[in-house]
Write a protein that binds this DNA or RNA. Structure first.
Lengths: 223, 223
DNA sequence: GATAGTTTCATACAAGTGTTTGAATTGCAA
DNA sequence: TTGCAATTCAAACACTTGTATGAAACTATC
């Protein structure tokens, strides 16, 4: 079975580099340099570069999903099967935001890697990514239980917007900081989480009549 | 001055391919094949691949910005210097959503190219992208005039979330369709625009006390 | 301590990339 | 038509990429 040392060194180095620089411009030679191993080691241990990426993504994916679900289940059990929508949304976007924003030294390479993966969509990952939908369905279920008289379409849109705000804020954090001249403090992660959750909650709980058929009359007037 | 035919054929082909497949896997040889020109033509007319991308991005960028600003100015003039926040947001996200979603045959390659550019962030584009911030500032100004008693931080966050919802919905439209089993109709673009504008408006106009210090007590309780 | 299996290493390889070159072709003015 | 510049073209170039090879080093079992 051997030491496994090289294997995990490669995984760690690859995750770090991909998280920092994206998949586009990280070569195998970059990875083996970072890991201090020989070039051929990647193909020896993983078969190919794509299989390395896939293994990295799968293992990180199930770890992340497990964490989010743990948080969700705990909340639902505590609430006797129904959690407040804010808590559900917090379980959905909190871990990722916390892992990607905040003080540099406490960001997790895992979270940043997953964000890269969700953005760049490189072939080996795209092939696997379908199962993330099954994971999201569990959140849809919890949201349905939390808001029983909300229709499904609104739930889906609410979920979509919650993820949108979280991911976009992470991706464009630098631009938001620059645009606001530092007035939007992205290091205050809990504030960011609260804002995202607050807006998503509003989207999901706003007056029914308005949200079911969202402001179309107004849309026409505005043309 | 010559015919310019080759030049514009290359630009069109490149835009089409980048819009469809992203920057990652479109080679110079793909472009010249699509444009029916010789390989060397790109370097002859543009100097390098990066300069081709940059020129494409710059020209599309100013065109898009001009359109958004035209819509914004018209609205403000009609309202005597102040436009309703919904109309401002509509001018911000409407054109992009309309250009990227909806029936296949009426999507604009320009809009789809710009979305790719905003996602993949390839080096030649990253170098130019700063001026987009100046463009966004004009929308910040309009939003300030529309909501004079809102503080700047809330404005910035509202703008950020509006763009977040629009872009994310475009990028993940396929996933949302699959997740909702078709119940979220992304071909009904005006409905999508209305939803995004509606939620962003709520984010920007919700009760002051709540949004200024967003639900932090609740956040603590939820842990 | 010899041996067989595993792991490392330097090196080579094939394929693909953007770019360059120099000759051919074209288009246009004198 | 002639001459000259602009443009096109096929081919080659230099470089980087992921992968394969075969020898060397290591490890553990007998």
């Amino acid at each position: 079975m051997a030491s496994d040392h090289t294997r995990s060194a490669i995984l760690a180095a690859a995750e770090r580099l991909y998280a920092d620089r994206g998949f586009g411009d990280v070569t195998l030679r970059d990875i083996v340099a970072e890991a201090n191993v020989n070039l051929a080691a990647v193909n020896y241990h993983f078969g190919s570069k794509d299989e390395l990426i896939a293994e990295l993504f799968v293992s990180r994916s199930i770890a992340t999903n497990r964490e989010r679900l743990r948080e969700l289940k705990a909340a639902e059990e505590q609430g006797g099967g129904r959690a407040p929508i804010e808590v559900i949304l917090r379980a959905l976007v909190g871990p990722t935001l916390r892992g990607c924003l905040g003080p540099e030294n406490q960001r997790s390479t895992a979270a940043r890697f997953m964000i890269r993966a969700s953005i760049e969509s490189v072939p080996p990952i795209r092939r696997i990514k379908n199962r993330e939908i099954d994971h999201l369905r569990k959140f849809v279920g919890a949201m349905r239980r939390s808001l029983p008289d909300r229709n499904d379409v609104d739930i889906y849109w609410g979920l979509n917007f919650a993820l949108a705000m979280a991911h976009h804020t992470i991706r464009e954090s630098e631009r938001l900081t620059k645009l606001s001249e530092g007035k939007c403090d992205l290091d205050d992660v809990e504030n960011v989480v609260a804002r995202v959750v607050s807006v998503a909650t509003m989207a999901l709980t706003a007056g029914r009549a308005e949200t079911r058929a969202p402001a179309r009359a107004l849309a026409r007037d505005a043309r």
